[in-house]
Write a protein that binds this DNA or RNA. Structure first.
Lengths: 344, 344
DNA sequence: CTGAAAGCGCTAACAT
DNA sequence: ATGTTAGCGCTTTCAG
């Protein structure tokens, strides 16, 4: 069932091995392998051939220590399982693609304590920059970020005070924007469905924005329903059934994310609710799988990919003339009315 | 728009700083920070207080170089955007949780060449092990993996020859299993819908298994339809419309993944197709959002979380008595008939 | 264009 | 239980 492979005995190759194999000094081999220009084509060729033949892979641990710089960017997000963060990461990867910087991902599960651990771990690799979701951190996390001596970009959210730079949208404003749209369309009895969000600060801010926006029109949320874990689509159905059973006279349901919104939409269509005539629906995020639903769910695009790109550009010093630190980029999310809010 | 923060001037803290701050030798400080037992409670306390007060974060670059070992596990997957790999990563994270090992993720976009780059980059950090999706790699990638001198676990797929260990399912067998179920249920005119899969070897193997399985019953695929990019749900709809327009007499549609299958299902229900009576449907993966669909799509569970757990356990040497290398774990995927295959 | 020497910050191995 | 020494594999710096 188990054996020791021959490779286990082989000492990893070093620069010295390559050096000896091609009769060029370690130093020059190092130059070639780092693609520096100041090497003659002849020796360059010799070195590359030898390195390739041996299968040499440089040791970045040693390189990083010697050069005191590491081409890593720490990226810390709460989750990978909802469709939102992978898209942010794509944006980051894309923007970092041609910079020589490499993203490294860490996941916190929406736990501040876990965030602290992940951060500690990642900063101990002395990355060239850090991108981290949200503005809420433990004191220890803030201290680490402040003392790291590298550019920090907090992303997704712009409602608060950043440590260094920030790229995001105002979730509070998004909530208010949705409130305006809902009221403008003539809905009056509004329910909210979302995650249990003691730890999801952005969902909380959207809810806050929604209630504040409604309040401006003298309206209050009629009811709320929360869930945790499980298949979001299914939860969306269940919560919808529950809240409508409790309050049959609701005329609008606002979901804290598109996935549960999609579940709710499917439920309502099945049960024959008149959407958007008697019952309006909306989600949040603008995930592209909404396009395949029987009816397009109203939503607000959270600019996820764009946020990733801009954050990465700040770290890479692109479009800032190489200046680092203290940028504030607030994107304006677009409300996509779809088919589930009736025209005013 | 931009400023230099004060922290930029601050030299990163070293062990020496902590040492001086608490009057204990660097060596002992190092011991405390690595939670070694051979330090007196008194000095331990003193050191911890000082380290915390200063906000010291250890330098793993230096530590890794000195100790010649790094608590990182390289994890390389093709994509994060379909729901399948995040679940594998969750399994890996969970299993690695209590081992002191830390996963680092890399993404290849299903490109062999990109895989090679990512691998090179990750191996240059001298991780303690590597987990990589699939058995198909470039020669250079194979060479790197073979020479890395660390445990390698190839995951997801068991149809082929692993470099070292493998944890996965047979996609060929999964295809055949589905063929059996389809034929047993009495369907005869079968179409296949999937990704353009020159690079998705597992989808290709499932299709191969399907056609071979059908062939055993004297059947051939009637038609196929492929897509690339975009919203999978929407693509599922479009492809379904296309293939049914071309071949209205198809009685079964096999989708290479659940997401396009879900799109197809929604389309068929909308158009009033008799599912599963006149038209059967099936997908692949067993993603849990299927639970929220109007009708549950037949699928085969790809054991994604479990694969992650087992792969991580192999790397960590759990349940193998610490023996490393050459394990073969083939999981048996379960066919979930759902509601879209009629009962035999 | 190439080479030699010094040292990055930490830990293994060996004292004490 | 604590301290000392040497060196991990590379790159910076300076010399040729």
């Amino acid at each position: 069932m188990s054996h020791t492979r021959p490779t286990d005995l082989r000492r990893p190759l070093t620069l010295r091995d390559v050096s000896e194999a091609c009769g060029v000094s370690e130093m020059t081999v190092s130059r070639v392998l780092r693609n520096r220009e100041d090497v003659s084509p002849a020796t360059r060729e010799k070195v590359q051939t030898a390195a390739r033949a041996l299968g040499y892979v440089p040791n970045k641990i040693a390189g990083g220590l010697a050069s005191q710089q590491v081409n890593l960017v720490a990226v810390i997000v709460p989750s990978l399982s909802n469709m939102v963060f992978p898209e942010v990461l794509s944006g980051i990867s894309a923007a970092l693609g041609d910079t020589g910087l490499q993203p490294v991902f860490g996941v916190t599960g929406y736990k501040a304590e876990k965030e602290e651990e992940v951060l500690y771990e990642m900063l101990s690799w002395r990355p060239s920059g850090a991108i981290i979701a949200g503005l809420e951190h433990t004191d220890a996390s803030r201290a680490m970020l402040e003392n790291a001596g590298i550019p920090i970009v907090e992303i997704m959210d712009s409602d608060g005070t950043p440590i260094d730079s920030v790229v995001g949208i105002s979730h509070r404003a998004a909530g208010m924007q949705m409130a305006e749209a809902i009221v403008a369309a003539g809905y009056r009895r509004i329910g909210f469905l979302g995650t249990k969000m003691s730890d999801d600060h952005r969902a909380r801010k959207r809810l806050q924005g929604l209630t504040d926006g409604l309040a401006e029109h003298g309206l209050e949320l009629i009811d709320t329903e929360f869930y945790t874990g499980g298949s979001a689509l299914k939860k969306g159905r269940e919560m919808t059934e529950t809240i409508l059973a409790r309050n049959p006279d609701l005329d609008f349901l606002y979901y804290s994310n598109d996935m549960i919104g999609a579940g709710g939409l499917l439920y309502c269509l099945e049960k024959g609710y008149d959407v958007p005539g008697k019952l309006g629906l909306a989600g949040f995020n603008g995930v592209d799988f909404l396009e395949g639903l029987p009816m397009q769910l109203a939503t607000i695009d959270a600019c996820r990919y764009e946020i990733g790109v801009q954050a990465a550009n700040l770290i890479a010093g692109k479009e800032t003339g190489g200046l680092i630190g203290g940028h504030r980029i607030e994107l304006t999310p677009e409300l996509v009315p779809g088919d589930t809010i009736r025209k005013a």
